[in-house]
Nucleic acid binder design. Structure first.
Length: 276
DNA sequence: ATCGCAGCCTGTACGC
DNA sequence: TGCGTACAGGCTGCGA
C-alpha cells in the first residue's frame, strides 16, 4: 500500500506535528517478528529516553535518527500505518508497537497484516545503500537513468518495482507512470528508444510529485488502507489514470482500460495508448 | 542476470 | 446468512 508518496506524506506530517525534539519515555512491542532480531525487552531498553533528532524518507523507509547515534528504519510494507494519538487512547488490536512521547502523545504502529518491519541500527547505510536512486532527487540524472534503463533486459514493470534499480515505486505508481509515458509494462527495457526512456523519466517524476501533492493514495474505505498519522485519508485516488480502473474509458483516448498480470502483479493499461 | 514461486499475515469482496 | 475462494498497494529467499 504505501509507496514513495505515501511514505513522504507520513514523514512530512510527523515533522509538522512536532515529533522532532520529542523524547521517547517508553517503548513497547507486542509482535516479536516485527522488531527481530531484537527482543521486546531489548527494543524497549534501547529506545527509552532517546530523543528524535531527524525524520526523513529514503525509498519506502521512514528514517528516524535518534540523538544517541542510533537510527530507526520503519518499513510499512502492505498495511503499516503510523498513528499519532493521545496517550490514554485505547489500543487498537492491530497496533503492535507503541512509543510514548514526553508530550502526552503516543506514536503507534498499526499493521493488520504484520508484514512491516522496524529496524534499529547504528549502520542504516548497510540497508539504505543497497537501494537505487531517489527519483525526485536533483541527483536523479536523466541521461544516467536512460542509459541504465536501456542496459537492462527485463520487462519494464518488474524493473520499475525493483528497489535496487529505482527507489520508491510500487504497483500503483509504476502503472501510472507507464500510462503517462505511453509504454507497455511488458516492454523489455533495452528495446526502448532514447525518446521513450526520456518520457518514462519525466512520467515517473510527474506521478510521484502529484501523489505527494495529493498526500498519497487511499483506495477503498477499509481500515487497512493508507492513513496519515492524524487519521486522514490521502486524496490521490481521484487522480489515478489506470490503476484499478479496469473497464473505464481511458482519459486520453477513450479505449477501455485492461487489467493483466505481469510478473505476478496486477497491471493496468490502456491497450491503445500502450501498445505491446 | 532474470524468472517464478512460496511464504510472511489478515481482511475484504464475491460467487453460490 | 454462511461458506469457500481469490485477491490485496511489499519484499525475501530459494531453485532453475
Amino acid at each position: 500500500m504505501p509507496e514513495l508518496p505515501e511514505v513522504e506524506t507520513v514523514v512530512r506530517e510527523l515533522r509538522a506535528d512536532g515529533l522532532i525534539g520529542r523524547s521517547i519515555t517508553r517503548a513497547q512491542a507486542f509482535w516479536k517478528p516485527m522488531i527481530a532480531p531484537l527482543t521486546p525487552a531489548a527494543f524497549a531498553a534501547q529506545l527509552k529516553g532517546r530523543r528524535v533528532q531527524a525524520i526523513q524518507r529514503r525509498a519506502k523507509y521512514i528514517v528516524i535518527t535518534l540523538a544517541n547515534g542510533n537510527t530507526l528504519l520503519i518499513h510499512l510494507r502492505m498495511t503499516g500505518q503510523l498513528n499519532l494519538v493521545r496517550k490514554g487512547a485505547p489500543r487498537d488490536p492491530h497496533q503492535h508497537i507503541v512509543l510514548c512521547l514526553d508530550d502526552g502523545r503516543d506514536l503507534r504502529y498499526r499493521d493488520t497484516r504484520k508484514f512491516g518491519r522496524w529496524i534499529l541500527t547504528r549502520a542504516p547505510d548497510t540497508i539504505l545503500g543497497r537501494l537505487g536512486p531517489e527519483p525526485l532527487s536533483e541527483h536523479f540524472d536523466r541521461k544516467v537513468f536512460i542509459s541504465q534503463l536501456r542496459s537492462r533486459r527485463r520487462q519494464l514493470k518488474p524493473l520499475l518495482l525493483d528497489q535496487t534499480f529505482l527507489a520508491g515505486l510500487g504497483n500503483i505508481y509504476a502503472d501510472e507512470a507507464l500510462w503517462d509515458a505511453r509504454l507497455h509494462p511488458g516492454r523489455v527495457a533495452s528495446t526502448l528508444s532514447a525518446m521513450e526512456a526520456r518520457r518514462l523519466h519525466g512520467a515517473i517524476r510527474r506521478v510521484l510529485r502529484r501523489g505527494i501533492q495529493n498526500k498519497g493514495t487511499t483506495l477503498g474505505s477499509g481500515k487497512s488502507n493508507f492513513k496519515r498519522p492524524g487519521g486522514n485519508r490521502g486524496q490521490n485516488q481521484a487522480g489515478l489514470k489506470v490503476f484499478r480502473r479496469t473497464g473505464v474509458p481511458c482519459l486520453r483516448c477513450g479505449k477501455s482500460i485492461r487489467r493483466m498480470i505481469i510478473s505476478q502483479r496486477a497491471t493496468h493499461i490502456c491497450p491503445n495508448c500502450q501498445p505491446a
